[in-house]
């Protein structure tokens, strides 16, 4: 409930077509309930995923790169294209022990593609 209201009360409504009393179509700005529910479900799912990955990174099971891929809603394939690194290498870098040994030149490519700073890329936010 709270999430839906939080998401949709930012003062940026979208327009929808609706019939008025005379049967003509006009624009109105009330978001349908179904939209709120589905968006809330998908976003809460994404947030839960991100949180899970964050914990896994802190526990040392995954590399921080994993976290930033999820944060930017990318897949290793998309990141590979954006950063200009082969997919199999990106997938290898998801392992923490390999990620820790990466050269700055490779990390810089990731920072550009993911729009994070180098310090950020090495760790995850610890809340």
């Amino acid at each position: 409930m709270e999430l839906e209201d939080e998401l949709f009360n930012d003062g940026l409504p979208k327009a929808y077509y609706k019939q008025n009393d005379k049967g003509q179509y006009v624009l109105e700005t009330n978001a349908p309930w179904a939209e709120k529910v589905s968006v809330a479900l998908l976003i809460s799912g994404n947030r839960a995923n991100l949180e899970e990955i964050r914990k896994a990174v802190i526990a040392g099971q995954k590399s921080p790169l994993c976290y930033y891929i999820e944060m930017r809603q990318l897949t290793p394939k998309m990141l590979a294209k954006a950063a200009g690194i082969a997919v199999f290498r990106v997938k290898r870098h998801l392992r923490p022990e390999i990620f820790a040994k990466l050269k700055p030149s490779v990390l810089n490519r990731y920072t550009k593609a993911l729009r994070v700073t180098l310090e950020e890329l090495k760790t995850v936010p610890n809340i």
Binding site: A31, A34, E35, L42
Partner: peptide, 9 residues
């Protein structure tokens, strides 16, 4: 939910 998102949103 994804279908709904594409349908309404």
């Amino acid at each position: 939910a994804h279908i709904l998102r594409l349908q309404e949103e």
